[in-house]
Amino acid sequence: MSQDDPHAHNDAVDLPTPTAWPIITAFGLTLVFFGLVTNLFVSLIGSLCALVGAIGWFTDVFPHPKHETVPYVPVDERVKEICREGREVTHLNPGEEGHREHVVFGAVHPYSAGVMGGLAGAVVMAIVACAWGLLAQGSIWLPINLLAAVGDPGLANASMEVMKQFSFVGLIVAVIVHLTTSVLVGLLYTVLLPMLPAKREWIWGGIVTPIIWSALIWSTIRFISPTLAEHVNWMAFVASQIVFGLVCGFIVYRSTNVATQQTWSVSRRLGVEAQRPNKKS
């Protein structure tokens, strides 16, 4: 090791020499400040003190920082041998090899599938919702504006006539909210579906989740958006949610499984290689 560590000798090690210059400098500086609230004379003494400290400090590190050589402590005071027997490590579930794991639940769907599923679900869901708007309410813009009203104060207080008209802000807000949520839910499907009881993924993704989600919204809608609460048609709402769930779940379910990257190091996952060569086991 010694060649890597220029400060270590066979039986001693170089350490920086203890010095009082830092405390003198710090004390001087504090006196400078203390003088501002008492008497400028104190500041004067303080600045002299700080100057002396700074000069002394300078001589300490110039041209090379001062060191003193400290001997190692006696052998019996040194660190004890680390106990190597160690303790056994419990194995994973019977039948599984080893005792270490990065937990993976079933198949791993690629995240791209989640994004795609979310987007496809978003489109289908929008079609169902707009169809409801057009057929039942006579306006394709109503469902869009209703969604936007959750976040847009202008639409939240608008009358029914205004809600049925085209609104540029409403469209933008609705599209952003709709796409963000859909993609997030799509991603959630890729990670959560494999954790649920196998073979029934479509029930979970297509029916159960949308119904739970709808129930959550139904119970809190008065607070989330009074406007939406007033106008929403729950049949159409649940229908569009289920359509989303089915489409998104289907796309995720059909995707090819990929190897997980989770055993990779941070640097490798980020695509930058740090100092050590890759040693994937």
Partner: peptide
């Protein structure tokens, strides 16, 4: 305590789930 539990490093799936929710 004589036996260490299985050493689990993490799970991208679960971590992603509790990021998205």
């Amino acid at each position: 305590e004589r036996k260490e539990p299985p050493q689990i490093y993490g799970s991208s799936q679960i971590e992603l789930a509790w990021t998205i929710i």
